[in-house]
Design a binder for these strands. Sequence first.
DNA 1: AATAATAGTTACATTTATAAACTATTGTAT
DNA 2: ATACAATAGTTTATAAATGTAACTATTATT
Lengths: 168, 168
Amino acid sequence: MQDMKEMKLPVGTKALILSKFYYGVLSKSLENLDLERYYSVLYFLNENNGCNQQCICNNLAIDKTAMVKVIDHLIKSDLVDRVINPDDRREHFIKLTKKGIKQTEEVVRSFMAIDAEIFSNVTKEDQETFNKVLDRLSLNLKALPSNDLFFNYKKTGRKKKITSTKAH
Amino acid sequence: MQDMKEMKLPVGTKALILSKFYYGVLSKSLENLDLERYYSVLYFLNENNGCNQQCICNNLAIDKTAMVKVIDHLIKSDLVDRVINPDDRREHFIKLTKKGIKQTEEVVRSFMAIDAEIFSNVTKEDQETFNKVLDRLSLNLKALPSNDLFFNYKKTGRKKKITSTKAH
DNA sequence: AATAATAGTTACATTTATAAACTATTGTAT
DNA sequence: ATACAATAGTTTATAAATGTAACTATTATT
């Protein structure tokens, strides 16, 4: 009753709903941490420790003005430090603290545990297809006109200094 | 550079990012409407016109206290009416107005156009697999413990009155 | 009749989204 | 070298979203 098992919804809406469920489960599983949000930022830093703020913004589709407060909060919780890049003093590197590394381990573990759990009754082939299509959809969407809510960076021709991650 | 093409992220995070892109494109494509958000509610009402508020909440994973303001806004824009159910005066049916029906047509058209566009270079088989897995993941997540952010309804044993949609 | 449950509302605090203007720094082109 | 443009990040202000709790009104249960 009033449930949503097989409601035909647009993929963007379905994705939003999935993410709500997902983060509900995640924050439950991490309620022992003193950090109560921004888990995806820690997850990202786990593989990209020391990147700058813009890099996090680009990869997680978070606005840079919001990112300032995210990092402020993480600093206040003693999970990361802001370190000015001496080679380009505009950039602030975000580096996990010792405590941050420890907590990030738990965060990553929870993320992976949830993924493993909810994919457990999906065949390997279907998982691959799913991920392939998911990535394809995001790429297709980026090619469409948008209220570029997150693209607060202009494409540019700079060739130097790879602040990027392995994610190209 | 600082792009996210093939970043390995948890599925919940990927889904959230996809939805951000998606709604960015959607609101761009609907910027001629005077309504600037809550499109998914109109989309849902298109197939479930006259359902009550809780039904919308359940199907779109929106909190009922938030839904009050959503409906208030839609009423102010003359897109829906709140109609008390005479058979159960607790329930308020949400019915599209004439203007609401018209605008909803455009909303639905945009949703479907975007879906068609971003799925256009995905094979039918992969689309089916993708949708199957997407639904499966949501089901799996609902079975896990969560900070039931959206489950502001207790499961109950009531047998009467199906306020539900075809979505069971 | 008393109690519990449901649908919806109100009030409040916090967080997030959005846009604009801003500083500081670096890159580019004359 | 200077001027201009671009980038990284911050601040400010406003609106909207989110989450919590308490509340009314109505209906179901016992």
